[in-house]
Each structure stands twice: as C-alpha cells, then as structure tokens.
Design a protein around this nucleic acid. Structure first.
Lengths: 222, 222
DNA sequence: CCATAAATGACACCCCGTGCCAATGCAATG
DNA sequence: CATTGCATTGGCACGGGGTGTCATTTATGG
C-alpha cells in the first residue's frame, strides 16, 4: 500500500511542500519576543513575519508559549538515556547530580541564546506558568530513575519527591545564572545540589562558605 | 424580600450594593468544576449561575484560574507572621518544617473541600500552570525567613533554593495526599521534610523505612 | 492528464480578559 | 420629597489565543 521503495532517497513525500519549519518560527518568534516583549507579540505577527498564516503557526506549535522551549521532549529523552547508562555503583543522588549538571551544559556559542530562552521562561508570567507543565516530563524521568534505585514505583511518594527536589535545585540555579553573565551554569547546578544534600549544615557555617564560593570564582566544588 | 435587615448592619458605604461575593462565586464555580470539569465550565456559566454578568465576575476574580485559590494571599500572610514569631533557638529547617506543617492543617470539616481544591489545582493543566505563579509569594516568604537566618538577602541564591525546596516537599505531599483519603496531610508534609533532610540516607535503608511508615498508618513520624 | 496525498489558507467559532460608559440602586443632604 | 453623590453593575466592543472545517494549492507517481 504505502511505498517505501527507495531507502536511500531522502525523497520528499508527496503533497504540498512545507512553507516553514519549527526552527524558523522559533527563531523569528524569539527575535520578536526579545525586541518587543513576549506579551506584546501576537501569534499573528510571528506568522506574518514567517510568511505563513496564523492557522499554520498552530500546526507547528500547539501554543504560543511552547515557542521558547524548542524540542524539550527530545532533550528530556536524552536525559532519560543518560540516566539509564549510569552504573549501579554510583550513589543515587550523585548520579542525579551529575546527570542534571550535564543536562545543563550547552556549547559555548549557544550560551547567550540559551540564557535568553531561560530568561524569558522564568520571567514572563505566562511562561513561568507554562514551565511547570513542561518540566513535568523532566520530573517524571528523574522520579523513574529514583524509583528504580529505591525499588519503588516511579510514581510513588519518594521518587516523586526526589524529582521535585532535583527540579528545585535546577530552577534555583537558573534564576541565579540568568542575570549573571559571568557565572557558569553547570557549576551553579552542582552547587545547588551540594547545598541541598547538606540542608542541616547550612546554618552552621556551610552557608557562608557556599555563599563565598559562588560569587568570586568557581574554585571549590566538584 | 431578598435582603434581611440585620439589626447590627455595619454602616454600608454609599453606592449600589454588591450583587454577589467572592465566596458565592467561588462555591458556585467549584461546584460546577466538580460536576463538569474545569475546562468545560466557562466564566459565562459561572456568572449566570450566580445571577451576575460575565463582566462582573472579572471584577471579583482577575482570572478564572484564581477561583480555586480562595484568599491565598492572606494565608501566605499568616505563614509570614507565624515565621516571624519563631524563636531564634529553633534551627532553620526545623522552623520551616513546623511552619509548613501548620500551614497545611485544616479543620476536620473542611478537609474534603480542601482536597477538592488541591486536586483540581494539581490535576487540571491550566491550573497546574497557574499554581507556580501563586506559590511564588509563598516561596518568597520562606526565602525571606531563610535569608534572615543565614544573614543573606532573601532574594539571594541559598534562601531562594530553600524556598524552592520547601515548596517541593509540600507539593510532593499534596500529590500523595489528594487521592488517598485515609492519609493525614500534616503528617505527609512532615514526612516529606524528614526525607528531604536525609537525602543521602535514602539509598541505605531509610527509604524502605519511610515507605513502610507511610502507607499503613502514621505510627512513626513526629 | 489524472489520481493521490500532504500541507496551507481562509473562515467561523468559542473563550478569556479588558477598556469604556451608561444605567442602577442606595445613602445622605437640603 | 427631590436632588446629589457614589460605588457597583451591565452591556458592548475589541484584541488575542486556540480549534474545527473545508476548499485550495503543490507536489509525486502512474
């Protein structure tokens, strides 16, 4: 019925060719958001700038607020497979810390773009709201891993708690990183996890040590 | 006919009397949400059921998604003043744990209503999204307290991290509590904080101990 | 040339949220 | 009693997000 005769040809499927791409809409949208502010840019305007109808925009992105997230689902899939490869000997929290740190390592040339994304996502109210929905997947991946390690269902209390907590660390690090162009995101994530696993110690001097360790340079952690 | 003349009517301000109240709209709305589902109920319908115009609804609640939150800002204000009264001797995390546990204690007769609220808030996608915005205030109160204790600005890294983490514990507890009518919310919150302050220990037997302590009955914690 | 298939564009809706202004109902005042 | 003042309401219009539907376009393959 359907033909799959030419495995080598990247031959275009029959039918009208696409008029745009996810990437194009995304970059146009981010450009406009950066210039005029998220809520001052309508889907109409993005579509026009891309030479496409409004209706078509919604065939590429389910929502205006999905634009800044790129292909987040795939990145989460990466995180999942990374975690799947962690050897059994590595302790749970250590494994999570390393995985989340790596998850947030971006190539040097993409850093400022990534900062713009995160800045938008954690600044614009509508996007802040949307973020919880997006991170839900992320949390589930963490919870699933924690569940495997603890011998519990991924959807049970402790694994979900660990998912929540890991996300907290990441988000707190994001917020610290966004306005400070001199800082390194993976290092901040690492610091957050470190502080988290020693909550009790915070009030006995660890706090000041960490606080000192953050601002000047990353000379302490890892 | 409609208006009962209270003998002790505190002087009404001049102008047209109000046609409804926050409480009325809220209860009507929650009723409809429970019956037809959040997204299947329009503001129009709530307004009609309350005998009020759609426009007026939006004078009482800025958003449809604010309905299930009641007067959350005031509850947060309570939390703030509770924390302000904690003696210096109580350790930081202990103080937070107790305050959050108390924050989530509701009178027995209001439990099922509260469960419905939280269930809606943490189930319906649009409300999940909205929750992050609402809890922002809550986090700030926690962060402010942590900042005072650590000698840091409430808006700096560690205090905000602590705010995030405390919220994580609460939300994880909510999710566990909502479907399990036999459980006690304050106890669950307490358990979450306990697990959180011993993250390292989770993989060395603490996990199973906690997991055992949760399901059957609350015989272990506190 | 014709069939098929996929994507687009146009249109009609519904809903949320807001600005604006006239109408309403009550109290206080003369 | 009539008038004035005033907060609230209701109605209307409008912009924006998101969806269902259907005709139209633009390709491929026989």
């Amino acid at each position: 019925m359907t033909r799959e005769d030419h495995p080598f040809e990247p031959d275009r499927p029959p039918g009208r060719p696409r008029a745009t791409t996810h990437d194009e809409l995304e970059s146009i949208g981010m450009e406009l958001f950066g210039r005029f502010g998220y809520e001052n840019v309508s889907v109409q305007q993005i579509a026009e700038a891309a030479g496409v109808s409004r209706r078509t925009f919604f065939r590429y992105f389910p929502t205006k607020s999905d634009l800044p997230w790129g292909d987040f689902a795939q990145e989460v899939a990466c995180l999942r497979s990374t975690l799947a490869l962690v050897p059994e000997e590595v302790p749970l929290m250590t494994a999570l810390r390393r995985a989340v740190v790596e998850f947030n390592r971006v190539p040097a040339e993409a850093i400022e773009q990534h900062r713009a994304r995160l800045g938008l996502i954690l600044t614009e109210p509508e996007l802040i709201a949307r973020s919880l929905l997006k991170f839900q997947l992320w949390r589930e991946v963490i919870a699933e891993f924690a569940g495997r390690r603890l011998g519990l269902p991924g959807s049970s209390f402790l694994p979900e708690l660990i998912g929540e907590i890991a996300l907290s660390a990441a988000v707190a690090a994001y917020r610290e990183w966004i306005p400070r162009h001199a800082t390194d995101l993976p290092t901040l994530i690492d610091t957050a996890f470190e502080a988290m696993t020693d909550l009790e110690g915070l009030e006995h001097g660890t706090a000041s040590a960490l606080a000192r360790g953050i601002a000047p340079a990353e000379g302490s952690s890892r």
